[in-house]
Write a protein that binds this DNA or RNA. Structure first.
Lengths: 342, 342
DNA sequence: CTGAAAGCGCTTACAG
DNA sequence: CTGAAAGCGCTTACAG
């Protein structure tokens, strides 16, 4: 077990100073061609690699990005990480992932753990609990300390920073419009509780589309799901009475559950019920029938977020002109599959 | 924007030495009660947090674990990360995730990037290309430098280190046995090419089960999938001729594709064709019919791997008794769903 | 009880 | 052309 070799050891072996070794390896013209060659050869032989930790301490930057997300087993978040990772790696950054598990406390702990010098900046999506509490002090604190933060998807207006989102309202509007165009008139929305920022926006988009099309707006057709339990009975009742002919679901899971329920009740999708879901994930592609979705390009969101963060990190030096935070909107598109085919 | 406060600044403000501040904060009895109180109060006020990078350099350990996996968008890997993250966090470690994207080069680059002092150890699953090439020098090198490595799922005998796997052979055997018990006689195996370690083992288990049950062993019923293209036609032909009555698929994706194909051809699952898949993921739970699976508990694998790594890290000090590497086998279980219901 | 010094592994302005 | 010194932020054995 040969420990990693350090500058000090090389210096000793070669009987020169540490400075000389360091400069030689960085190919400084200060050092004679001869010495440089000698040192470089030796370093290569012993597979010298500078210690990242020492460099981080010296440079006061670590070339790593902290990601804090609610869950990694959600396909959407996994794709975002994938996107972040790509561009981070291309710029020589590595990526640390922490999970809040939708818990405020864990989100705070993670941030604090990583904020002590180990990260150059953060990319994050808020936990449900954080959105519910509306407490963002852990984030503003980090920003105040000079670490840039980029939020994606689940963001808040109460923190000033770069953000990347989709236009949830518009996307919901378009999806509903699509359902209307196909001749549907009784369109339900199955969504989450309002404190989840994206849930609220999608509800707004739904409502606007309904009204713009002069369809009767009916509160009862909006189902806000707190827990997945009684949800089935709620939606079942609507289907039973044929009170609805289409559904916009705020995620895949709701959509697939509805479809299964419909088929159990003898309703055919899409003939009796058209379904569109938010978030284009695995389920939509492989369920039967396949599900039409509003695709949020997670990869692209991740890439964009990483670009914004790295941009800020690399221009931070001349820190005037700050405070011009941007919000990037990633376009969504409707992927039409069997659940809406006529 | 108040930069983070350092010991030095506190020392200056309070007009004591840095040593005194440091000791006070660590509650050393060397320091007078008075001074300690004063320093601690001040530190609290300014929200002092020690700089992790400096600590890492000093202690020569970073309290972070590097994870290198082929893909994060595979549900199985996401669950493993989730498991690792849990126990890592509980032990004060954070977790860095790098993706090899099934590429040997990227795996090597990632390892080298992280091996320069930033990680205390690694948890990894080999990329396909790495398994194909059989080149593991990047891993042995890291181990030689004294960094412990734990491999999971896609492992190799050629590297000596701790490992956590499932008993792929046994699991395949049991799955086939289950299909046999249900009266199936013409059981196909749909698997990957042999260099993927788990693929090979599952094939072995399948073969043994077939032979043990005195069923005719037929090479043609083993389909090794290189690319997903011509695969459909291969399996379609078998189904057409009713040459098979059951399938063991080596992953969910194969299974769901087969099921869709079968239903397109007018075959009913499970009546005409029973299907079991390896890996219990999202697809199996939500496809129609739901798919019976051999569940590999990714969470548990991750937890176990993290435990093994941390164990080694925290006992490393007294480094005798090394080299006693263990391989932990995580039990699998068969989750019976609609695709095998009689 | 307090503080100066050395050291973790590196870089770089400055002297010689 | 080479090297000693200071410094990144911390800890700790040692002197006083």
């Amino acid at each position: 077990m040969k420990r990693k070799v350090t500058l000090k050891q090389i210096a000793k072996e070669l009987d020169v100073s540490i400075s000389t070794v360091s400069k030689s390896l960085r190919d400084s013209t200060e050092i004679s061609e001869d010495t440089r060659q000698k040192v470089q050869a030796f370093a290569k032989l012993y597979n010298y690699k500078p210690n990242n930790i020492a460099l981080s301490l010296k440079n006061r930057k670590t070339k790593t990005i902290g990601i804090i997300i609610p869950e990694i087993v959600h396909h959407f978040f996994a794709t975002v990480i994938s996107g972040i990772e790509q561009v981070a790696n291309n710029h020589g950054y590595s990526v640390v992932v922490c999970l809040s598990n939708e818990s405020f406390d864990k989100e705070v702990i993670n941030m604090e753990m990583l904020a002590n010098g180990s990260m150059d900046g953060f990319i994050m999506s808020l936990s449900k609990e954080t959105q519910y509490k509306g407490d963002f002090h852990h984030i503003t604190e980090v920003i105040n300390q000079g670490m840039p933060v980029v939020m994606f998807d689940r963001v808040t207006n109460e923190v000033l920073c770069d953000k990347v989102i989709i236009d949830d309202k518009m996307a919901a509007y378009d999806a509903v419009q699509n359902l209307v165009n196909m001749g549907n008139k009784k369109i339900a929305l199955v969504t989450t509780v309002d404190y989840v920022s994206v849930g609220k926006l999608r509800t707004d988009g739904y409502t606007k589309a309904i009204l713009d099309n002069d369809l009767p707006f009916n509160e009862k057709l909006i189902i806000k799901i707190e827990d997945i339990e009684n949800f089935e009975s709620q939606i079942a009742k609507l289907m039973e009475n044929r009170a609805i002919d289409a559904v916009l679901a705020v995620n895949e899971l709701f959509a697939v559950t509805i479809i299964k329920l419909a088929s159990k009740m003898g309703l055919k999708v899409p003939e009796d019920l058209s379904v569109i879901a938010f978030t284009d994930g695995i389920i939509s592609q492989y369920s039967t029938p396949t599900i039409s979705t509003v695709s949020q390009n997670g990869i692209k969101m991740g890439q964009k977020a990483a670009k914004m963060l790295i941009d800020r990190l690399e221009t931070e030096e001349d820190d005037d002109a700050e405070e011009l935070y941007r919000t990037e909107v990633i376009e969504t598109n409707l992927i039409e599959r069997e659940s809406t085919k006529r």
